[in-house]
Design a protein around this nucleic acid. Structure first.
Lengths: 398, 398
DNA sequence: TTGTATTAATAAAATGAATTGACTAATCTT
DNA sequence: AAGATTAGTCAATTCATTTTATTAATACAA
C-alpha cells in the first residue's frame, strides 16, 4: 500500500546514512560526511553527536588536509553493539558473536545429527545464553539474535513466525514454529532467514558486497542456495523462495549424483549426495572440510564432480546475466575456501564460450570474505542490517 | 553514493503518493486518502489542493457512507497532462498521444523499411509535432516525449544520451545519438528506453501491473524481449541489458528457425526468421497481423512454431521462478492478441510438469492490457512515470 | 421533530527536523 | 604577521507535517 512520510522518517534515514558513511568510509570527518551525504555540516554534526552519545561511533585521530582547521575523524565503535548469529542445519549448529564492526568475537560449534525440534531449540537457547552472558558483552548493547535455517521457509498469517524446513531433507521439521519457540525463552529481538539469504546479507553489509548494491550470492551449503541482493536489499520473491538456484535443470544429460525423477542441479551440490557418491568410490568423507584434502590431492572422483559443478554453475550464471544483467556474483558457503576459490578462478573462462553478448561486460566472480562461517556471520548481521542499513523503506510509514 | 534527505523531498514524495492513490483508487475522498496513505487529513487535504490547482485531479461526485458529512471524491483529470510515445523499429514507427489517465487519444502508424538515422529522426520529429500541435492538446501540459527503441541500448559518459541498436539486426545504426538528435529539434523532455522495458513500465503504470510491484514482462517484438519490474520500478541491470530473455539457450535440441552458431531462444521468436521460415513453407507472411489468420486456421506450420515457442518459454519462466520467485508474468507485444492469449492460457499447465516446488505457488500468466501498441503506450508513459510514480528514490538527494 | 453521534473538511497553532547565517578556532600561505 | 581556508558549532529561521479546534453535513435514536 502507498503510504506517506514525514520529518520523523527523514530523521531516521539521515541517521542511518551518516552511520553507514562512517562505517564504509571512516575514519572520516564531520565535514566530509556532510559533503558525501549532501547534508549540511550542521545536520551531519548533529547526527554525529547522537551517534557518539549512543556509542555507535567514536572519535579517531585528528587529520589535516591542505589548509584550515584540522578535522577530528569518526569511526565505528566496534563495542557499540553486539549481535548473535546462529547457523543451524541437521549436521551442525554454529553460534557466533560479532561486534558492530562485523568482527567475529566468539564462536561455538556443535556437530549434531538431525535433532528433534525440542532438542535443537534447547541447544540454540543455551548457545545464545553462552554468547550473550560472556564478560565481553556485559552491559553492552545487544542488537539481536539472527538465525539462519536451511530453506525454504514459511511465514504464517500473523507474520510473526517463519519456519519450516524442506521436509524431505529434514524429517520431523515440518512447520516448526522456531521463531515463536525461541522468543518464549530469549529476551532479544529474533530474526530468521534462510541461511543463503542471511549469508548474502552478511556479505552485503560487511563483506565482498559492501559497496555493491546488486549482486547474486551463491551459497554452497547442505545444497545449493542463492541470495539475490537488489538495490542494496535482499530480494526474497513472492513466496520467499527467490534464489532457489538448485532447482534449475541440468543443461545436458544429468549428474551421476542425481536420483530424483525431476533431475535438477541441486542434486549435484547436495553434500549428502556427494558424500554418498564419494563413499561408493571408497572415499571416506563426512564433512565439508574433508573435501579440501581430496581437492589438494586432485582426487579423480572429486575433480570429476568439480568439473561438472562448474559446468552446471555456468548455466545458472548465464541465466543470471540474461535475466538480471548482474555485475558481480559472490561465491561462499561451507565448501573449503580453496575449492570456492578454484571455482571463482575458472568460471570467467568457462562462461565466455557459451555467453552471448552484444555490449555488456561479463559478470565478475568473487569469493565471499566470510569464509565457511558465512551463514552464521550472515545471521548475526540480520539485526545489524535491520537497525543500521540505509534502506529507503525506513523512509516510509509502516 | 549514500545521500540524505530533507523536508523538500518529503513533500515531493507525499505529493506523488497522494496522486497515485487517487489514480489507482479514485474516485476517493480526501479522508480516505488520508487513511490509506497514513498522512493526516490536513496534509492530504493540502496536497489535494495543490493537485487541483495544477489540474492533475478534479472533484467528482459526492459520496455518503453511513453517517457523517458526505465526502467529495477526487479522480484523475485526464486532460491534466498529455504525453507522446514513439515505438520505432526497422519496419515501423508508431506514434501516439495519451492523456494523464493513460487513454490513447491519437495514433499515427508508418510502415517503413530500415531507414537511415537521418530519415528516421525526421519522421519522428514530424510525428511528434503532429501529435503535440493538435487542437486537443492546445495549451495543455505536455509531460514529455517517450521513445522506445529495440535494445540493447547504450549510455554515454555524460549520461545525457542513450542510443544504439543491435547492429546485426539493424545496419548503419551503431552508436546513433538518437536522444541528442531529437533534443535539438524538440522542445520537450525526451525519455528513451528499449521497447520491452518501456512496455513493461506502461503495464506497470496503466495496465496489468497497476497493483503488482514485482513482475516479469515478456515482450514479443522484432525478437523476444523482457522487462523486469522490481519493487515497482524497472530493473535494468549493470549494462541496461536485464531481461534479455532471447539469449537463453534452447532447453533441448534447437529450433528449426535457428541459424547461428550460438543457438538461443531469441532466434525462434525473431519475426524475420519466422516470416522467412513460413515463406519457405509457401506462406506469404509479412506482418505480425498476418499471423492471426494462420492461428485461426490452425495452420500446421504455425502451430508447430507455436508449440515450440511455448516449450521454450517454459524454460525461461522456470528460471524466472527459481531466480526471482516472481508472482506474475505479463505477456504482451506485437503478436496478435489471440496468440498471446493462447500462450497465457496454455503455459500454467505446461509449466506444472517440469516445475519443482516445495511450498511456493506457480507464477500467474496474464496478457498485457496495452494490446499490440504496448511499446508505444509504454514509451508514452515514460514521462508520466518520471513525473508521477511514487518511487522511493525521489526521497533522496540527487 | 429534536438531540446526539459520526464523519468530512479546513483554519490556526505547534512541532521538529534540516537549513541558514554568524561566529570561533585552527592551520596553511604569503 | 596578515590573510585565506577549513572545521565545527551556536542561534535563528524555515517549512511540511502534525495537532488542536471549529464548522458543517448527515444518520440514527428517542
Amino acid at each position: 500500500m502507498l503510504t506517506g512520510t514525514n520529518l520523523t522518517y527523514t530523521k531516521a534515514y539521515n541517521f542511518r546514512i551518516v552511520f553507514e558513511t562512517i562505517r564504509l568510509h571512516g575514519p572520516i570527518s564531520r565535514a566530509d560526511i556532510a559533503r558525501q551525504t549532501r547534508l549540511t555540516a550542521q545536520t551531519a554534526s548533529n547526527i554525529v553527536a547522537r551517534l557518539l552519545e549512543r556509542n555507535f561511533v567514536k572519535e579517531g585521530v585528528k587529520l589535516q588536509k591542505k589548509r584550515g582547521a584540522p578535522s577530528t575523524t569518526l569511526e565505528v565503535n566496534p563495542e557499540g553493539a553486539y549481535s548473535v548469529g546462529l547457523d543451524f542445519n541437521r549436521d551442525h549448529l554454529t553460534g557466533i558473536l560479532v561486534d558492530l564492526a562485523g568482527n567475529l568475537k566468539t564462536k561455538i560449534f556443535y556437530e549434531i545429527n538431525s535433532p528433534t525440534p525440542k532438542d535443537a531449540i534447547n541447544l540454540m537457547v543455551s548457545t545464545i545464553r553462552q554468547l550473550t552472558d560472556s564478560s565481553l558483552v556485559k552491559d553492552a548493547y545487544i542488537a539481536g539474535i539472527g538465525l539462519g535455517l536451511p530453506g525454504p521457509l514459511e511465514i504464517n498469517k500473523n507474520n510473526e513466525v517463519s519456519n519450516t524446513i524442506n521436509p524431505k531433507a529434514f524429517p520431523n521439521w515440518e512447520h516448526v514454529p522456531v521463531g515463536k519457540m525461541l522468543k518464549d525463552k530469549i529476551d532479544h529481538p529474533i530474526y530468521i532467514e534462510n541461511n543463503a539469504s542471511a549469508a548474502a546479507i552478511g556479505e552485503r553489509m560487511y563483506g565482498a558486497g559492501k559497496n555493491i548494491p546488486n549482486f547474486l550470492y551463491t551459497f554452497f551449503g547442505a545444497g545449493l542456495g542463492g541470495g539475490l541482493v537488489i538495490n542494496g536489499n535482499i530480494f526474497e520473491g513472492e513466496n520467499r523462495n527467490a534464489g532457489e538456484l538448485g532447482y534449475f535443470p541440468f543443461p545436458n544429460g544429468k549428474s551421476p549424483l542425481s536420483t530424483s525423477d525431476q533431475p535438477h542441479i541441486g542434486e549435484h551440490f547436495n553434500l549428502n549426495n556427494l558424500y554418498r557418491w564419494l563413499n561408493e568410490h571408497d572415499l571416506d568423507i563426512k564433512r565439508p572440510e574433508d573435501l579440501a584434502n581430496l581437492y589438494n590431492d586432485k582426487n579423480e572422483w572429486f575433480m570429476q564432480w568439480l568439473d561438472l559443478a562448474k559446468e552446471y554453475l555456468v548455466s545458472i550464471f548465464l541465466a543470471a546475466e540474461y535475466f538480471l544483467d548482474i555485475e558481480i556474483i559472490i561465491l561462499g558457503g561451507r565448501l573449503p575456501y580453496s575449492i570456492i576459490e578454484d571455482i571463482a578462478k575458472d568460471l570467467p573462462d568457462l562462461i565466455e564460450k557459451p555467453r552471448i553478448s552484444i555490449n555488456s561486460k561479463p559478470p565478475i566472480f568473487q569469493c565471499g570474505t566470510a569464509g565457511t562461517d558465512a551463514a552464521a556471520l550472515g545471521a548475526a548481521t540480520l539485526p545489524m542490517f535491520d537497525l543500521f542499513a540505509a534502506q529507503t523503506d525506513v523512509l516510509i510509514k509502516d
